[in-house]
Design a protein around this nucleic acid. Structure first.
Lengths: 121, 121
DNA sequence: CAACCAAGCCTTGCAATGCAAGGCTTTTTA
DNA sequence: TAAAAAGCCTTGCATTGCAAGGCTTGGTTG
């Protein structure tokens, strides 16, 4: 790989980090709206199913913040013969916030796609 | 408006701020790839055409950073009888980065929309 | 029994960015 | 002359992603 293209890769990587901000919170709430998940399951699940890589150092502080804000709640239960797991579910408040987020996301994504549509090279 | 819904509005607003991170850089490069723009024109243009509200306190530091990174370049010219304008255009490096960003955005947006598609309530 | 590994949770400190608030200059207009 | 509008910029704060590392539990292996 040339020096130029590796610098470009780094820039894209830095950009993707910023791109996640806010999106992750949305994605977590969206995932929990379908069924309860425990933390580690969110990490592996999002990586595999949605191709969104979420490191543990990101997910646990985020889950903690969402709990403090009353958007989700947790229950500690014994796992499948392994270490105990903390299962998270949406609260009523979390559902309401998610419902408000969806049109915001759709509007923004549509705007970006509109600009993308005009991109001809 | 009730106290609850105004708190929800504030939370959505805070979230939208985070959602912009990264997206704005992408949107600016995308906009400049079509034709040159001056700073204030980006503010008004994105608000009107793309419904993306970009305050001046956001756009000017961002344009400065993109210039420092060699992604865009500027030329100061007299405006339409008003104050002088700084016109920005993409550099070759900026075009290359934009080209690398597009598939990243499309992949992420597709992942989120995939999760959204499974959302039934 | 001791050593090891995987699942699973958490904390700390840093890096990066949006933006409110305010200030500056130039030109037009009342 | 005063005021408003176009247009550019800076400072400081708040927020968030994440790399790196540590902790616990239970199973597996020698």
């Amino acid at each position: 790989m040339t020096r130029q293209s590796s610098e470009l890769c780094e820039q894209v990587a830095r950009w993707e980090v910023q791109l996640r901000k806010g999106i992750l919170e949305f994605v977590i709430l969206l995932t929990l709206s379908r069924r309860e998940h425990y933390g580690f399951e969110l990490v592996t699940g999002l990586t595999e199913r949605a191709a969104i890589d979420v490191p543990e150092g990101t997910i646990y502080p985020l889950l903690l913040r969402l709990s403090k804000d009353g958007l989700i709640q947790s229950e500690l239960r014994d796992g499948d013969g392994g270490a105990p797991r903390k299962y998270y579910t949406l609260t009523h408040k979390g559902s309401a916030l998610l419902a408000a987020m969806i049109p915001s996301w759709q509007k923004l994504a549509a705007s970006v796609d509109g600009l993308l549509g005009g991109h001809r090279n």
